[in-house]
Design a protein around this nucleic acid. Structure first.
Lengths: 339, 339
DNA sequence: TTGTATGCGTTATCAG
DNA sequence: CTGATAACGCATACAA
């Protein structure tokens, strides 16, 4: 079962000891040219590749990273994962991908497994506050970098965006177009990502004469429809909807269509988190987009840096958020032309 | 860096030897209740988790699998990966994900790395014929299961769909609606997946009075536009287009829109491989869909089975393909009503 | 029921 | 420049 030539096979073939082979493989010591040539030929002929697992037993480095997300199937995480994998690959690292479906229990279970596997470090998009996960990582001295979600007073490094600013910019865009009644579709209170976005959105309202209604408890595409219905029944009726994640955005769009509301003529719709353009029939949604791919890459760079020289102070990387303007937001229906 | 209690720490704390701890952890021998209790408490207090890496050095099993695909970002592979991860997780395995971008070189590079990592087995969606990869796996006796793409005379097990039958069923659907001039958008000749799909499509034509034109050399969404243009210029003009993968399908749809052709009123469009419904504004494309998630799960089951008891004969699992009928295919434009 | 010796594939350390 | 020895954390084989 999975037999591979060992360093001793090479040594035997080259008529030296395994230490000598180790030295030529790792350039970790002086070797005469003649011997080096013999060893290299033996390596070539046998197709020898050092066992990283045995190596790791000694060196405490497995060149393996892990990425824990809620669901790789969410396009944001898919792109993030690709960024992680590319950056890891550049550094000759392999990455294990784990899905938690937002379960803290799974988060811990994976962390235990990964620690058992002796991964060098973990990139975590935390399910909730990730208290247990962070404590475990700390106890094990397992390098851990948090991705995307802000964790207050975290002792770990983090790569994320200025979510509040992003939400604010969407609202400002809406206000600038003349919207004064805006509905916000949000996840249940307590989910940090969503809470930040809500807060940012509401901040944009300060000092304006506009009004926003926040619908919480919206978890999926399907529940988004409920929010849209309630929103459509309001008096005065909102002229714009801001959905705080991509699934809610899709759900809102479909619900609006079902109710015969045209977007953006009858009502505008803005979203948070982009959808993959290559897969869309027609890129249409105006959204606040996080740089998922870059976030993945940055996370790996940071993690590998911390692995090679552990520092005490956690660092924070804030990536820019982009307002991607496409076609789903227009001026409010009855607005008089500007001039 | 990443320190964890070892079996000896536990042994010391419980006042026994490491062997006794090993026995209670693995239930691999008799242990008195009193001792077991002490050991378990020590394990609990220390938060001991056995090192799989050290374990693997002895047992030759790391409980780690790898998945090699061209691009995790392609929704087919994303879903496949989720299936793989779920099935692996059920069996307490971890999975490394690798992207090759269809490069055979990368394929080999990863296989070497993975072999070095002592993964227990590999799930491979081969880039081309994967000759080198298969040879390497065989030489290393590394369990390998091929996914999705058929490899002629492969010495490895495989999970795939009856691609030709799938392509045939799409064509029969088209023929049944009255289409007689059909354009087929295909990848360059030599890519097995595409070739099979083309062959299946053409088989459906035998004995019919319909005619098909195959456009090869179409690799991406963008090049698909070229195919559409040429197709639109043909006399007689095809009444239906069958695009052989999801990117080509999207590309064709956009190109048709750009040229003012309505789908399906002016021209019908069928695709191969589904797009993720949850992400689409409006599920619209009629496609032949492979069960990506199930394929991933099945691959893991098969792989783990082969790891635990290697058999000489490769097995083949053929999964059903589904014709998902939505709105992008209708009768040909000028067809007289049936009655 | 428990312990001892040994080895998995490598590399650090010290000798030669 | 090269080799012998030990150790990484664990489990198999055997002994007590």
């Amino acid at each position: 079962m999975h037999v591979r030539p060992t360093i001793r096979d090479v040594a035997a073939k080259a008529g030296v000891t395994d230490m000598t082979v180790s030295r030529v493989v790792n350039r970790s010591g002086p070797v005469s040219d003649a011997v080096r040539a013999r060893v290299e030929r033996a390596i070539e002929e046998l197709g020898y590749v050092p066992s990283r697992i045995a190596r790791g037993l000694r060196s405490r480095r497995t060149h393996t990273l892990a990425l824990i997300v809620s669901d790789i199937t969410n396009p944001f995480f898919t792109t993030l994962a690709r960024g992680v994998e590319d950056a890891a690959s550049d550094r000759e690292h392999l990455v294990m991908v784990c899905n938690t479906d937002e379960s803290e229990e799974e988060e811990i279970r994976y962390l235990e497994m990964l620690s058992g596997q002796n991964v060098d470090g973990v990139l975590l998009v935390p399910a909730k506050g990730a208290e247990q996960a962070r404590a475990l990582a700390k106890r094990r001295q397992l390098p851990l970098v948090i991705l995307e979600r802000r964790i207050p007073e975290s002792e770990h490094s983090i790569v994320h965006c200025d979510t509040r600013a992003g939400a604010r910019s969407m609202m400002q865009y809406l206000l600038g177009l003349g919207h004064r009644e805006i509905a916000i579709l949000a996840s249940p209170i307590g989910i940090a990502t969503s809470d930040d976005r809500v807060q940012g959105a509401l901040e944009a309202l300060e000092g304006s004469d506009a009004n926003a209604t926040v619908f919480h408890e919206l978890l999926s595409r399907d529940t988004a429809a409920k929010g849209v219905e309630r929103c459509l029944g309001m008096v005065p009726r909102p002229t714009a909807i801001f959905a705080l994640n991509n699934l809610l955005t899709i759900g809102a769009l479909r619900a609006l269509r079902m109710h015969g509301a045209r977007v953006p003529e009858d009502i505008s719709l803005g979203g948070f988190d982009d959808l993959p353009e290559p897969l869309l029939e027609r890129p249409f949604l105006t959204v606040v987009a996080q740089p998922a791919y870059e976030m993945g890459r940055a996370g790996v760079e940071l993690l590998i840096a911390e692995i090679s020289k552990p520092t005490s102070a956690p660092t924070e990387i804030v990536l820019p958020l982009e307002l991607v303007i496409r076609g789903s937001i227009g001026p409010p229906p009855n607005s008089a032309p500007e001039g």
